[in-house]
Amino acid sequence: MTPSQITLVQDSFAKVAPISEQAATIFYNRLFEVAPQVRVMFPDDLTEQRKKLMATLNVVVNGLSDLPAILPAASALAKRHVDYGARPEHYPVVGSALLWTLEKGLGAAWNPEVAAAWTAAYGTLSSYMIAEAYGKAQAAE
């Protein structure tokens, strides 16, 4: 990721943060719409899960300027996701739902540059997490 992409991600996330509860609801609704098979991995009451999602995104987004500092937490999260039943093929679906949510949440502020920056950020972290959880070969697929 370039420094300008990091800035775009951080600035755009700052615009979503005030509507974080709504954004998290939109995200999970979209995720379960496009991948209903993953619904069983989540509790019936998503209140705490939505808070965890937004808190995690906040840490990651704010840590993009110093990626090595957030990688240990990303590794631990990836390994916990294995225990929940997450598979490498779930990562692109989650990424798609995240980008869709950001597009809806940002409205006119969502543009090709912001989309490319978020795509780069998610791609970087999801590849790392897949490699940590399942090995380097899975991350390359």
Score class of each variant (00 low, 15 high):
Y128Q: 11
V94G: 04
A139Q: 10
A74V: 13
P72K: 08
A86G: 06
A14T: 11
M54Q: 07
T56Q: 08
S127Y: 02
S127D: 07
Q5R: 09
I26N: 08
W118A: 07
G95R: 03
G123L: 01
W118D: 04
V38I: 15
A121Q: 03
W100E: 11
A24P: 01
V94S: 02
E141M: 13
W110R: 06
V16R: 03
P18V: 03
A24Y: 06
L8I: 09
T25I: 15
W118Y: 02
R50W: 12
T2S: 13
L102V: 01
V61A: 00
P43A: 07
Y128F: 12
R87P: 03
L125V: 02
V60Q: 12
L125A: 01
V16N: 05
G63N: 14
A109C: 13
K52L: 11
V114C: 01
Q138R: 10
I19S: 03
S75F: 02
A137P: 06
W100D: 12
W118F: 10
Y122H: 06
T124I: 06
I70V: 08
D83P: 09
M129V: 01
L98F: 06
S75I: 03
T47F: 12
L67M: 15
M129L: 07
G63Y: 08
K136F: 08
A139M: 09
E103C: 05
E132P: 00
E103H: 12
N29Y: 05
L8M: 12
N29L: 00
P72T: 09
F32H: 04
A115E: 03
E103T: 06
V16K: 04
S65P: 04
D11I: 09
T119P: 08
M54W: 08
G107I: 03
V94W: 00
L67Y: 11
V94C: 01
A116Y: 10
L64Q: 05
L77V: 00
D44I: 05
P88W: 00
L67D: 13
A121L: 05
R30T: 06
A17C: 12
S127Q: 03
A117C: 03
V60P: 00
V40D: 12
Y122D: 07
Y122V: 13
A69P: 11
K15L: 07
S20K: 15
W110S: 01
A121R: 01
S126T: 04
F13A: 07
A23M: 07
N62Q: 15
W100S: 10
A117Y: 05
I26Y: 13
A14V: 08
T124N: 10
Q37Y: 14
A140V: 06
A74S: 13
F27N: 01
T7K: 15
D66Y: 11
V82N: 10
F42K: 10
L99T: 05
S4V: 14
